[in-house]
């Protein structure tokens, strides 16, 4: 992905569910971008990506996405990542479903 922004998060999709997931600082995969580890050093980001890819197994299509520091954790930079983080714009389905049922 783009190298335009200094800060990155490691992201991919869950193998079983297909959900968007992010790598947290403790090495766990989480559903919320806010809980992801914001990596500001490019060298460390590349290392974390390699570690995540080497884990294999549970997550598909792992890559580094641009992100920036926000008041509640990492925030998306590109609109594609905003869609992935928020879920479908049809809020009755996907990530926004729980808050609206």
């Amino acid at each position: 992905m783009s190298r335009g922004s200094a800060a990155k998060v490691v992201t991919g999709n869950d193998l079983r569910q297909g959900d968007v997931v992010y790598l947290a600082a403790n090495g766990a995969w989480v559903r919320a971008l806010q809980e992801a580890e914001l990596i500001e050093d490019v060298a460390i980001a590349d290392l974390r990506l390699l570690e995540a890819m080497a884990q294999g197994g549970d997550v598909v299509g792992v890559y580094l996405a641009d992100a920036r520091r926000g008041p509640n954790g990492p925030e998306p930079v590109h609109f594609r990542e905003a869609f992935r983080a928020r879920g479908p714009s049809n809020y009755r389905h996907g990530k926004q479903e729980a808050a609206h049922v």
Binding site: N13, L15, Q17, G18, D19, V20, G56, V60, G61, R80, F83, R84, G87, P88, G94, K95
Partner: peptide
């Protein structure tokens, strides 16, 4: 099977991995 090995098999059976889900 790795994802690279599996992808052609799922695509032969109509299964995509899209933005939010399969």
């Amino acid at each position: 099977l790795s994802e690279d090995e599996f992808r052609p098999f799922r695509l032969m059976n109509g299964v995509y991995l899209q933005l939010h889900a399969y």
